[in-house]
Amino acid sequence: MNHDNDIPYISDVRMLDIDTDHEWARFKAAAGISEPKTFRLSTLWKAAASIVLIAGASLLAYNHLAAPATETHVASQEAIEATVETSTQISLNRNSRITCTDNRKNGTYNVQLEGEAYFDVEKNPDRTFTIDTKDVTVTVRGTSFDVCEADGNTTVTVTSGNVEVTNHADNQTIGNLTRGKQLVCHAGGKMEVRDVDNFNCIAWKLRNFEFNDQTLEEIMKQLQTAYNFQYNFANDDVRKAKLTGTFDQQDIQSVFTVIEEALDITITQDADGAWSIGK
């Protein structure tokens, strides 16, 4: 029997390449099913300022009680983008979640963040825009910035405008954080402000890297945050090889090609998708 003609015709199989987990996440969000599991949500804030917020390696199970106009976005395997208010954009990094509460009555817009997000917040003098992590409250003063909560620390890196941070431990406030300033709030509430000379730490969003005589080990670690790949080193010589250079919005393949040329090494992809770096 010739089975060739037994196969049913499907209108366009490529359109039905459905990610069931993704659809389930969508459904759960719409149905209001809450469960501290794998969500996929996204939010991005657009403003006269942009902010990146990075939060911890682990998601905390917040209990979100019903509040005025609340929406939740979750990024599980991939970073996602969301638009809230009218034009505030939030890029949510992998393994992160935000819950946004629009409280028009008292003129506040609040975002609860677990993980990391980059905010581009729309300018609106009539409302106060705040972001809460476990440890701090970030108040937006017309700014772009990144907030990262990881390893027990919350890091706020400002790319434009002006941000104010208040820690939850003792309500200490540090204001006037501007471009190039990075605030770290350590476990326990101690805060320090330092200058950053590049924005590699938020390259997962911007995909702009600037390396200055850094080892391949350090470089791969940073590239991994933006491109999400697995890799291994063939030997310590390669691991310790040093590189200076910049990458601007390039795909990972062309980044690797440049590194291969510069260091005279080979970077090849295994059958399982991991990259092997060797001589």
């Binding site: 359109m15 389930w24 459904f27």
Partner: peptide, 30 residues
């Protein structure tokens, strides 16, 4: 959740037979 995950694609395909538009079919399945 199990019902959803096991049947979502099939229900979408089922709706698609009527509406001939996969995005609409997905919405209808939802």
């Amino acid at each position: 959740e199990t019902l959803f995950k096991q049947n979502f694609v099939a229900v979408t395909a089922y709706c698609n037979k009527y509406v001939r538009d996969t995005e609409e079919a997905k919405d209808l399945a939802h």
